[in-house]
């Protein structure tokens, strides 16, 4: 079933067309990869899909609802979560608090400064559950600032998962990660695909080709190719590139 569908999106900044004609369709329970050279429009595309920018033309539908032009918080409430290329964490707080603050149960509560969030066992338990999904349950009470870069990335994903989304958008999850952390992130995303539909921008093509069911190649603000990793790899220029070595 198509969970998320984008049809002929256009986005201009002044006289410049940044997204010309983006269409893509994400099937439920799959990992949909987006790749493209620097400046191709990938992040702008994410911003439009998750409501940070309104498109100038085109349709975006999620479970049949037209969401083009809706605000980010309205889109989030429908079950669409995202992470950012640049991490947004509260470093001075403990790991679990980052997740608690993102839980819908917490957000819907009226704000009470006298009450300690950690006294609410339901919130803490739910946050621990989310942290467990990304392998950080045993670090729940550490300062977020003390986490390794790879674990910070995992925590960012946990923050995105806290909203209990149907679909998660990840913007370059491997950026800044070393080889070992990238391998662990690959295992993490593999485990998440059981539960969530994932759309992922990624520069690391080996990573993307390993994980994605379908890949859209974006360049010049347009989808210049879209297929399964196996079919994309069959292209003779891909076979000649370093990607050709990917098993």
């Amino acid at each position: 079933m198509t969970l998320f569908k984008v049809e002929n999106i256009q986005k201009r900044f002044g006289s410049r067309v940044v997204l010309e004609n983006i269409s893509l369709s994400v099937e439920e329970g799959t990992v949909h990869g987006i790749m493209g050279p620097n400046g191709a429009g990938k992040t702008t595309c994410f911003h439009v899909l998750t409501g940070f920018y309104a498109p100038d033309a085109g349709r975006i539908t999620f479970e049949g609802h037209d969401i083009a032009g809706r605000k980010p918080h309205q889109i989030a409430r429908l079950g669409i979560s995202r992470s950012f290329q640049i991490m947004n964490l509260f470093d001075d707080t403990v790991v679990i608090e980052n997740v608690i603050l993102a839980l819908p149960e917490f957000r819907s509560r009226s704000f009470n400064v006298t009450q300690n969030v950690f006294d609410d066992t339901a919130l803490v338990d739910r946050a621990l559950e989310v942290l467990d999904q990304v392998g950080l349950a045993d670090r729940a009470w550490q300062k977020a600032a003390a986490l390794s870069y790879g674990n910070r990335r995992a925590l960012e994903i946990a923050v995105a998962l806290a909203a209990d989304p149907r679909i998660v958008f990840l913007d370059e999850p491997t950026s800044g990660l070393g080889a070992e952390a990238t391998r662990r992130l690959m295992d993490l995303i593999r485990s998440l695909r059981e539960t969530y539909t994932i759309v992922m921008i990624e520069h690391d093509m080996r990573f993307l080709f390993e994980l994605a069911d379908t890949i859209s190649v974006i360049h010049w603000g347009q989808v210049i190719a879209e297929d399964t990793p196996a079919a994309l790899r069959a292209n003779k220029w891909v076979a000649r590139s370093t990607l050709g070595d990917v098993a």
């Binding site: 010309e20 004609n21 493209g36 050279p37 033309a57 093509m205 190649v217 360049h219 347009q222 210049i224 190719a225 994309l232 292209n235 003779k236 220029w237 891909v238 000649r240 590139s241 370093t242 990607l243 050709g244």
Partner: peptide
């Protein structure tokens, strides 16, 4: 709505990353 003429001014071609193949397919499309 969509241009009839597409003029690509010295696009970056790099044999390392495989994008050439997708770019050429796009021109053909």
């Amino acid at each position: 709505d969509y241009p009839l003429l597409h003029l690509f001014d010295e696009p970056q071609f790099n044999t390392q990353d495989g994008y050439i193949g997708f770019m050429l397919d796009f021109f053909r499309k």
